[in-house]
């Protein structure tokens, strides 16, 4: 998977969770997206782990700076 593909996947998944169109880019932070609260993050992370077959540590899930950083972690960078 390329980083672009990961970010597209993240956008689609978050759109499903919030039931509206959300477009993310590398610089998007959680606080930039209306309705994205910590409870959304919980579900978001579970879906990422299951769909993309990655395991993220408790520490990684607890803190990520922006979507670009999250995508890098998913890609193992």
């Amino acid at each position: 998977m390329t980083k672009e593909q990961v970010i597209r996947y993240l956008s689609e998944t978050l759109s499903d969770l919030l039931d509206r169109e959300v477009v993310l880019d590398e610089t998007t932070r959680q606080s930039d997206v209306d309705g994205w609260d910590s409870l959304t993050t919980m579900t978001f992370m579970v879906l990422i782990e299951n769909d993309l077959h990655v395991q993220m540590s408790i520490e990684e899930i607890s803190r990520f700076e922006n979507i670009g950083a999250l995508a890098d972690r998913i890609l193992g960078k």
């Binding site: 998944t13 499903d16 969770l17 039931d19 579970v46 879906l47």
Partner: peptide, 14 residues
Amino acid sequence: PELLLRRRASLRRR
């Protein structure tokens, strides 16, 4: 369960 997690908001609306 994963489908439920993902589609919860739209299911609720429908």
